[in-house]
Amino acid sequence: MLELRLVQGSLLKKVLEAIRELVNDANFDCSATGFSLQAMDSSHVALVALLLRSEGFEHYRCDRNLSMGMNLNNMAKMLRCAGNDDIITIKADDGSDTVTFMFESPNQDKIADFEMKLMDIDSEHLGIPDAEYHAIVRMPSAEFARICKDLSSIGDTVVISVTKEGVKFSTAGDIGTANIVCRQNKTVDKPEEATVIEMQEPVSLTFALRYMNSFTKATPLSETVTISLSSELPVVVEYKIADMGYIRFYLAPKIEE
């Protein structure tokens, strides 16, 4: 028996919108820790890892570990039927081949049940070791989204370079080139508007902008984004989900032949 009641149902709606472009089908894993997912895109270039901790739910019952295979576009279709202020409850019985999403309006005058068929998904879990990153950049998520969108109108790849001067996003295409430099800026009114750069050593890596743009679908989940770079590792683009957990995107770099 599984029953997870999320008062801020809009978070789950935003999570689905953030990942459904990257991944079609995925297993949601439910354990005492929380509601989680790890899935790769079909070309094994990008990976999304989601965690919604059990403490973040108003009610969290998960009698035994359960893995539920879902088509994310179908799940998004159902969650779009929930109001932004609705409380969402996810329910499943042991051994059942369906999951139920229950939507309650804030004043309890409307209650809806949507039952979705589950699917068997063979998913390969990747072991992601804890790593030391050469550079960690925290910046406003909307700013990062704007940069990725702007650069993708010029080129297909972005070079992200971190030096003590700041973080530089560069691209090149048929019509020309573009460079956007963001300097560390802690003297802002609100902490979420700051750009903070922690650098152990300079790093420069190249990534496909198509994936970066897909990650920025998570922008509504968090005011800030953290980009962790190391020359020997995929980049991690992390959006914290207030009080509940995170959504992390990993992207393998491109290398010069």
Binding site: H125, G127, A208, E257
Partner: peptide, 14 residues
């Protein structure tokens, strides 16, 4: 020419 690496080059399957 640039080559796109895959995640398996960095992470191992459990």
């Amino acid at each position: 020419h640039e080559t796109q690496l895959r995640l398996e080059a960095f992470f191992t399957f459990n």
